[in-house]
Amino acid sequence: MNKIDKKILELKDQGRMGLMTHLVVGFPSIEKTISYAKIMEDSGADFIELQIPFSDPIVDGPTIMNACDVALSNGTKVSNAIETMKILSNELSIPLLFMAYYNNLFKYGLERFCKDSRTAGASGLIVPDIPIEEEPNEHFIKTAEKNNLYPIRVLSPASTLERMRKNSRVAKGFIYCTARQGITGVRNRIDPKTVSYLNSVKREINVPIAVGFGISGREHILSLSKHADIAVVGSAIINVINKDYSKAEAKMAEFVRSLLFDT
């Protein structure tokens, strides 16, 4: 059984929304990535997505772009990201996913990437720029599944009913719904249309729903808790790191805990 499924069963048993936190591998250093991830688990995160830094991250806003730039200028390679995954999966028990842009996988070799990621203990892949229509050429979904990695499908408020169904047919683990039509980054409030969109996704598909993009605090998560199964917090966490590198560990524990419900 994939760790993601186990986790989702656990969340259902506990009757609570899950929390997925985000890190860019190598930002501000590999050592820090490892130490932050441990703090995240200790503070209550249910999943962590480890983003492989890319030179041209098309759905990311300034916060994550800058983190990618820093990680790349530190010399972070795809192979380092896989090593980091290996270290973390040995030390943590929650499911870990890679978030990456397709070109990094393609150049590394898709088959090799999936194999190495699986061996390193990854449970899933979130790759936003490989749409289902390119599957006949790329075999991304097939290759991921062959290696017992869940290829997480992404939906947006612009997705038509037809596209929701198309993606849900191949969805494994959960579907990642972007809370807004836009790029990643902290926003002050949740778009009021988000709830109705999440509800329409829920009607169409049987897979658990993760919601991310623009979610930065407990109130955001509370307002979505009835409409999705997992909340994803990305840029807001990187902002915690950005504020003060030296205090980031303590601040991160505090921040992650502040996102959780009382259970």
Binding site: V59, P128, P131, E133, N137, S156, R163
Partner: peptide, 21 residues
């Protein structure tokens, strides 16, 4: 149909742009 020129081309974009394209 899908904008491929042999193995080149295509539409490798995030979901939020597919409906617009």
């Amino acid at each position: 149909s899908k904008g491929h020129f042999g193995k080149f081309g295509g539409r490798y974009v995030p979901e939020m742009l597919i409906p617009a394209l």
